[in-house]
Amino acid sequence: MAQEIIEVPITGKIISVNVKVGDEVKEGDTICLLESMKMENPILAPVGGVITKLEIGMEQVVKPGDTIAIIDY
């Protein structure tokens, strides 16, 4: 099985987490919302698969390169 690591693209704050470990997601599903530059930016699943790791939580301040989630597909 291949793994896809979703990384934080821009410094900001997580304002909603829309999945949990074990969830099945389709390509384009929203993983979380990242507030940055006064905008709510959805972070989308780049591939369809199962969430095997989730490294973010609500209100967490994140920086570029931090892992958001890992999808097995």
Binding site: M37, M39, N41, L44
Partner: peptide
Amino acid sequence: RVVQKMGQKANPRNFLLM
């Protein structure tokens, strides 16, 4: 913001905001 949204729609890996 428009570019960011359209970019993500065309390719969910994209994050074009910056």
